[in-house]
């Protein structure tokens, strides 16, 4: 358990550290973060509001994955991001939808019979509608995650904060974002140390109820500890004169790259309109 948590933590830290070594060398990296951010927000709006069409979602996420290969975003990291957030999370939420949506029966699982060998025990039914709704839901989240991952893995966190400030997002929100970001680091680090400390203390397995009470205790401890560290970080920021801004070092966005980026957006916009309205 501890070693699993440890390797999970390492993965997570690495992946939150948003390493951009691969993208750094490309023109894409020097596109103005503001434009990238605006484009991302716009894509999210289109996905969720203007064009809630599963065929569009599928095309978009597939297209983004292809492009990320071209601009040398670290592909394995992108896949992890997309898999963890974009597949696991919606699966957990989407699976119940499979079962609870009423409609034409697609399959019946005699779960009760398997367990109790009583033919009258409860059964689970999956409906066609259930499959549709769950599938759409899954695809939607998957697309959203891909869009966000595309921005995050090609843009340092401080650049995103800076862009948000350019958009006049109040410092309260950018600070909150920054602290949340740090909070995740703490959360996982503490998770590892708490599990390790706990395992070293328990040689014998506790009975289930005790184990449960114990775990909820640990979890409370984890939250408190991470929160406490969050407060400390905020103090450290204030102590060095924090006023909502972070320095952008050795980075000036490249006008040419930005123009190319905008041009590409316009081209696919045009193509999109063409297919949508004329076809």
């Amino acid at each position: 358990m501890a070693s699993l948590a440890k390797s999970l933590n390492r993965e997570f830290q690495n992946y939150l550290a948003f390493e951009k070594e691969h993208t750094r060398a490309t023109l894409f990296f020097s596109v103005s973060p503001l434009i990238k951010l605006l484009h991302t927000v716009w894509l999210l709006l289109v996905v969720n509001t203007f064009l809630p069409d599963p065929r569009f979602w599928a095309t978009l996420s597939f297209g983004l994955l292809l492009i990320s290969l071209m601009v040398r975003i670290n592909f394995s990291r992108l896949m992890k991001f997309v898999v963890i957030l974009g597949i696991l999370y919606p699966l957990i939420v989407a699976i119940p939808i499979l079962f609870i949506t009423p409609g034409n029966v697609w399959a019946t699982i005699p779960l009760g019979e398997w367990i109790t060998s009583n033919p009258n025990a409860f059964t689970i039914t999956i409906t066609n509608e259930g499959i549709m709704v769950a599938g759409i839901y899954f695809l939607r989240i998957f697309t959203n995650v891909t869009v966000v991952a595309f921005l995050i893995l090609s843009t340092p966190f401080t650049h995103i904060i800076h862009a948000l400030r350019q958009l006049k997002v109040p410092t309260v929100f950018t600070s909150l974002l920054m602290l949340t970001y740090r909070y995740f680091f703490f959360f996982f680090e503490n998770l590892v140390s708490i599990i390790q400390a706990d395992e070293s203390r328990h040689v014998r397995k506790l009975p289930f109820i005790q184990r449960f009470a114990h775990l909820s205790n640990l979890f409370g401890n984890l939250l408190l500890r991470s929160l406490h560290q969050g407060v400390n970080v905020h103090r450290a920021m204030l102590a060095r004169g924090y006023n909502g801004e972070f320095p952008l070092l050795e980075f000036s966005s490249n006008r040419k790259a930005t123009i190319i980026y905008i041009a590409i957006i316009l081209v696919y916009l045009g193509l999109g309109c063409f297919f949508y309205f004329i076809w």
Binding site: A17, P156, T158, Q229, N232, V233, A236, F246
Partner: peptide, 10 residues
């Protein structure tokens, strides 16, 4: 608890 930016330089 004191360091909060990604790299030493930042």
């Amino acid at each position: 608890d004191q360091l909060f930016l990604p790299t030493v330089k930042e």
